[in-house]
Design a protein around this nucleic acid. Sequence first.
RNA 1: GGGCCGUUAGCUCAGUCGGUAGAGCAUCGGGCUUUUAACCCGAGGGUCGGAGGUUCGAUUCCUCCACGGCUCACCA
Length: 511
Amino acid sequence: MKLFDEENELVVQRRKNFQEIIELGFEPFPHKFHRSHTITEIAEQYGHYAGQRSPQELERINRELNRVEVRIAGRMMTQRLMGKAGFAHLSDGDRQLQIYVRSNEVSEREWVLFKKLLDLGDIIGVEGYLFVTKTGELSVHVRQLAFLAKAFLPWPEKWHGLQDVELRHRLRYLDLMVNRHSRQVFVKRSRIIRAIRAFFDQRGYIEVETPMLTPIATGAAARPFKTHHNALDIDLYARIAPELYLKRLVVGGFEKVYELNRNFRNEGLSHRHNPEFTMLEFYQAYSSYEDLMDLTEELLIHVVEDVNGSLEIIYDGRPIHFGRPWRRLTLIEAIITYWPHPASRPSPEELWDSERLTALMKSVECTVDPQAPVGQRLVKLFEHVAESHLIQPTFIIEFPTEASPLAKQSETDPRLVHRFELYVGGLELANAFCELNDPEEQRRRFEEQMQLRQRGDEEAMMMDEDYVRALGYGLPPTAGEGIGIDRLVMILTDQKSIRDVILFPHMRPEA
RNA sequence: GGGCCGUUAGCUCAGUCGGUAGAGCAUCGGGCUUUUAACCCGAGGGUCGGAGGUUCGAUUCCUCCACGGCUCACCA
């Protein structure tokens, strides 16, 4: 894909204009422009002067405003020329402000610059005074005009902006310039992350950083990215989860820790998967997964209120209510509840029967590996029949042990672990459980995973001997949770694709 | 990886039941000293994603390739 052709007439024209700007004596790439205000500051301080008024009232307002001298800078987004005067809008990235330039009130070369040589997208600075036009728009009446930087490449369509999804992702800088909505998504993302940190900081958790490059990739079921350390001559893996390091820290006495950072998984891309994604993980000693359900409700309510102002949002055209308490149902209940054919709705006993389970899965067109452990197949079946129905915040609890090699078993039913996943808008947002802290049992679970791996399950977990040793020193009863931040941002910004909440999503290289 | 869909001017999009294409914005020239989707007059700009095939003739039909979108699989 060829984005911009150097021979394109629009590019040639812009280069020519740039040459003439230099010939007029303007510095081609000035180092600095002193601003008295950002455009956003002017909009906030003087925006209330805008609005239609009677001629007398306008004159009175302008006598006051004309005393406000400003120096502002920004990117020229629009321009309207009318013979010996003209208007333009400058943007500081956030807000826009109109400027008004008259040929007889600026120097001759400044007028030539404004009228003939500036192109949409160029960056300029102006000095002048504020006024309100007769149509009621707050504007700067320009006395001096400075050239600051050239946009050499053509500008997108002014009404529709940049629509092409591929271009919006590859040329994110351009997308951010012309699509205000796109900018707002990432401003909101930043606020969400700030709100999360504030929540944990206020509650006495400490934020930590654990390795991104690790000798074994473990803590989740996924294929890793592999790289090589030259000096040590060893292979390293980009982490797929920080889980085992964070629990080592709980062993070490950090009773409440969190980490908010990137994970890497070498899997397919989809509207909800990017190879690198942002994960919040937190662990707290002397707590159970029940405590974490309460905490998760508090956390997300804090975040939703902070960025949204209310507990109801719209996602994909449907309202979602974050008011407590959120629904809780077990994984088995969810499968039965959302079973698509009421006549053949299975019982819990049927679901736990390996052969019956395979038949049931086939009956609802869920692809099945009959050799896989029953527990793994149950999770797959749950995702197949129930996941897309979980629009309102819902905790799915009690997962099969076989699908949860790091979680502590139920006291009453060893087939199950005390684990939950949180679903909102049909997306899995969080995963949490009581942490397995019996070193012998943990070793046995790792060994089970290694057997699956030998049978060809590339996503089965690798043995981590040092982690078992850490458990050998004693991990207090602990619960931990991971929350997918990109998906949370999707929900709160009403975006259907993870690529729209990641500034530079993974793309194939340009052809 | 499979299925379906898409790729036409810098951008946003029409269109050609097979006879090599249009609009708006943007650009260029002219006019206009409070416009704001400014307006008025005039002009230029396209290997119709790439390669092959069928055909007298392909942007249009077929095949392959590239990139993208949706979806399925994978992501427990």
